[in-house]
Amino acid sequence: MRTDHTDHTEIHVINGIFHQPSDSEVQRWMSSAFNMAIDALENGEVPVGCLLVYNDIVLGKGRNEVNETKNATRHAEMVALDQVLEWCSHRDLDPKEVCKHTVLYVTVEPCITCAAALRLLNVPLVVYGCKNERFGGCGSVLDISSGDLPHTGTSFKCIPGHRAEEAVDMLKTFYKQENPNVANPKVRKECMSPAGGTITTHTEAAPHEDDVKMAVSD
């Protein structure tokens, strides 16, 4: 799953200098992230894919695995971060030191959970496709990426908008096939429940990035 890494990379980890990615790098890694998203789509998962790249080496690749794990936090970013942690543990390296020099390429703006996780691991830069209007943690719902959270790792920068329309189209394709009743008026009403109210989820069918379509049928 992970690509080439040789022993000399450890030198980079220690003396690594962080560079802003060039356009061609962005294109190359984002295209790989889109392939991960397609893989998610083909496996009945929300089509989000990502790569964590350190000095030209892919340390982690991920796509949504929420349905297969029944864990609503198994977003692409979390899956990829686990691979980085494993990579570090094999080399006895401090994950935060490695992440400090790692860029995340992801097809959709990270959600609030993932944005906080990226902060906790000191990832400095996120390149993403489309905005995540429902859950986005890099400005769409909350700005966790640059928020004043001194006990939650370090803030990070974002480069948004790479192949954004394509990323949105994939999400739309997914929701069309998974949720035929998107326009259910009852759903709309429940989505607007007042703060603190309890929402019953079994009737909820609106499209959400992390909407898990499981349990009921198995």
Binding site: R134, L142, H151, G197, I199, A206
Partner: peptide, 22 residues
Amino acid sequence: PDGALGTKYKIHCQKELNHHFD
């Protein structure tokens, strides 16, 4: 100090989100 259910944020009643809790 960086809590998200009252201290820094109140994510449980963030209007834009699709689920809220007490």
